[in-house]
Design a protein around this nucleic acid. Structure first.
Lengths: 219, 219
DNA sequence: CGGCAATTTGAAGGCAGTCAATTAAAGTGG
DNA sequence: CCACTTTAATTGACTGCCTTCAAATTGCCG
């Protein structure tokens, strides 16, 4: 049905024993539900919902975001194919939404947790996953203390690493999502990209929703 | 020797089975080293060091921070008595320093990990700890997209929650650390606190390095 | 081609940064 | 305990970056 590829960063950046992916998938088979198809901007889980399920992105890009009273919004993280997330809280602190058309696999959280209690490699996999996401969140927090130019460049490089695309990278999510992720306005994001283009750091790709990283030293 | 109290948030906010603290400490006894006493601004671990040890704060306040090429600095997180951290990376991505005089217990990371591989409740404890820190990092990233006033208020409320002090809270770390944590200058932090004092949201305590939260609705 | 959404560009204003000086607090030695 | 030094915090004036508001342009899908 859906090819769930293992996120490269989890295995690559942690020396925790790499678990047998097949074994995990087999154990998860009884717990999983879906994958379900969502369309761009569909709400996958609502802020405040009971977090009965953990999410595994099968395709597309998913965002977790917090909405403020004043109507503002903040995109806490993007998740893409292979990313497992949402096992942190009993209640969904953030709403989960589809940035693009996406396929999401639902895994019963209670079942996954009891599986982790029995199978130690599952617990270690979850630990590695959580640790990896923690580092990303901390890096992001650091990025948020920089100016607009560095934030945009930092996001682009981070995103290219996650995609594994070093030259031409695709940005399937709308600029508004990137702006809300970086704590900037969409105008500032647009202006910053224009400046980066003029300075030669990036180039607009012929393909839509993608651009080319030129020389990252020019950052 | 040193009273290591369990961080209240780990047990309080996660339904993961609470492990027997005594059992954990017993198992850790063979792995631990210290506690060692550090003075204010002492470097506990350097950025780039091999992360052979995991840290458990026994007393005082510890910061993990990243230094930039331009001399700037960013305080990623504060850790206080009972906080266990640093098991995420093989190499220390951040330098660990003492905000105040502090006692820190060192735990061999490899040993802790192999212990986690054998004892499932250890793995689950680490998972709960990592998950808890992840949520804090995400909350912090959200905070960083707000203006100065909200950042300061958010930090004060978060800090009061972690301390368990709802009215009078102590701020043992220098303002410069708070500023670097919030991505602000020390001048802005000072000015914001002054404004909050004038608006009645906070009051300066008679005791040094502490202040009083008045009405958080007035935020 | 027409309509909507997303992006781009411009002009003006506000908030936080920078630079500088003063005040307060903490540590040190007599 | 007091004088002195050093560090930390406060306050002010000015600059600059990002936001806000507004309009124009592009791209997409019917």
């Amino acid at each position: 049905m859906s090819k769930v590829r293992k996120p490269p960063d989890v295995a690559a950046t942690h020396e925790l024993v790499r678990i047998d992916e097949r074994a995990l998938k087999q154990a998860l088979a009884a717990l999983q539900h879906g994958p379900i198809r969502f369309r761009r901007n569909d709400v996958i889980a609502c802020e405040g919902d009971a977090a009965d399920y953990v999410f595994l992105v099968a395709s597309g890009v998913v965002r977790s975001c917090k909405t403020f009273d004043n109507g503002g919004r903040n995109v806490v993280a993007f998740y893409l194919s292979g990313d497992l997330f949402g096992f942190g809280d009993q209640k969904c602190a953030l709403s989960i939404e589809a940035c693009t058309d996406a396929m999401v696999l639902f895994i019963k959280r209670a079942g996954l947790m009891s599986l982790a209690a029995q199978e130690n490699h599952v617990a270690r996999f979850l630990l590695a996953t959580a640790t990896n996401e923690l580092r990303r969140a901390q890096d992001h927090a650091i990025l948020m203390s920089q100016n607009a130019k560095r934030r945009v460049i930092g996001f682009l490089t981070d995103w290219s690493m996650r995609l594994g695309e070093t030259r031409q990278i695709s940005l399937p999510m709308p600029y508004q999502d990137i702006a809300d992720h970086l704590g900037l306005t969409i105008e500032t994001v647009s202006r910053t990209l224009t400046k980066l283009e003029r300075s030669g750091a990036i180039a607009r790709s012929s393909r839509p929703r993608s651009l080319i990283l030129r020389n990252r030293t020019n950052a």
